[in-house]
Lab assay of single mutants.
Amino acid sequence: KQVQVGDEKYTFDTPEEARKFAEKVAKEKNLKVTEKNGNFHVE
């Protein structure tokens, strides 16, 4: 599963790991997490 933050992409083995990372980054940057096709976008 992938997490996209701006132009950066991070790959994780499980959706749970990806979601945790996305939520942590979103909180730090005051952004929101959206899920698209099983991948997460922080925007």
Rank of each mutant, 00 (worst) to 15 (best):
K1F: 15
K1V: 15
K1E: 03
Q2E: 11
Q2V: 15
Q2N: 10
Q2L: 13
Q2F: 15
Q2G: 07
V3K: 01
V3H: 01
V3I: 03
V3A: 02
V3N: 01
V3P: 01
Q4C: 15
Q4K: 08
Q4D: 05
Q4G: 03
V5G: 01
V5P: 01
G6P: 01
G6R: 05
G6C: 12
D7I: 09
D7G: 12
D7V: 09
E8R: 14
E8Q: 14
E8I: 14
E8Y: 13
E8C: 15
K9R: 13
K9F: 14
K9E: 07
Y10N: 01
Y10H: 06
Y10C: 07
Y10P: 01
T11Y: 14
F12S: 00
F12C: 05
F12E: 00
F12T: 01
F12M: 01
D13W: 06
D13M: 08
D13P: 10
D13L: 09
T14M: 04
T14W: 03
T14S: 12
P15K: 13
P15D: 10
P15L: 13
E16P: 00
E16Y: 08
E16G: 07
E16W: 09
E17S: 06
E17Y: 01
E17V: 03
E17D: 09
A18H: 00
A18V: 00
R19G: 01
R19H: 05
R19F: 07
R19D: 00
K20N: 10
K20L: 13
F21H: 01
F21Q: 00
F21V: 00
F21G: 00
A22I: 03
A22Q: 01
A22H: 01
E23V: 07
E23K: 05
K24A: 11
K24W: 12
K24M: 11
K24P: 00
K24Q: 12
K24G: 07
V25M: 11
A26S: 06
A26P: 00
A26C: 06
K27S: 11
K27F: 12
K27E: 09
K27W: 10
E28H: 07
E28P: 05
E28A: 10
K29M: 14
K29V: 05
K29F: 14
K29Y: 14
K29C: 15
K29E: 08
N30T: 05
N30Y: 06
L31F: 09
L31Y: 09
L31E: 05
L31S: 08
K32Q: 11
K32M: 11
V33E: 03
V33P: 03
V33F: 10
V33W: 08
T34I: 14
T34A: 06
T34E: 06
T34K: 08
T34N: 08
E35L: 14
E35M: 15
E35P: 03
E35H: 08
E35R: 08
E35K: 09
E35G: 04
E35Y: 14
E35N: 08
K36D: 09
K36T: 09
N37I: 02
N37E: 09
N37W: 06
N37V: 02
N37M: 06
N37H: 07
G38L: 03
G38Q: 04
G38P: 02
G38I: 01
G38F: 04
G38K: 02
G38N: 05
N39Y: 12
N39H: 11
N39P: 02
N39A: 13
F40R: 02
F40L: 12
F40I: 08
F40Q: 02
H41G: 05
V42W: 03
V42Q: 03
V42Y: 02
V42G: 03
E43H: 12
E43G: 14
E43A: 11
E43F: 14
E43Q: 10
